[in-house]
Amino acid sequence: MKNLIHIYSQNRKRFIRLLIYVAAILLVAGFAVTVIAKHTGNAHEIITKEPLIDNEGTGFLDGHQWKKIEGMQISPSDKIYTKTAILKTIIEVGIINDNPLLTPSDSLGKYSMLIDSFYADPNNLDIPIPFALKIADLSVKGMSDGRIQLYKRALLQKLKQLRLL
């Protein structure tokens, strides 16, 4: 012990310098971990705590929420599962209420992809998902782009009229 105290008193400056180095390394390592976490898997949960679903947009589920599914930390197949579950639910609710939105003519995976490309256009983001699904169905059933645009314009006008947008 006496030896240790002797060594310390002889190398005090070196010891303090060492402490400063260790503190600096810990600081840099902490910063690096934060930066890495931000750019990897669980960054969303660990760092931001931003809610995955909010009412950005119309208050209905729309393109804003649809696009957020892509940002979720889940596997690609589970993203497709989530999207097709949403579409299946929408279709079934229409059937249950005797007011079917559509009768699917293709797989829900295909509809999901069409909706992905529909919402890639920022002008469409405020359109609620049931109508994006309807527009995808018009496309699947072979309606021309011109007529689909007309449908979309009329739909937007109606939704705005009803103050739903």
């Binding site: 995955l52 589920l61 889940i74 609710v93 229409g94």
Partner: peptide, 22 residues
Amino acid sequence: EIKTTIKTLILRAAEDASFFSN
């Protein structure tokens, strides 16, 4: 949290679809 998010999306889809089907 993620599981609840998926479930919330499904329930909100049901609610929205019921709204639009009057």
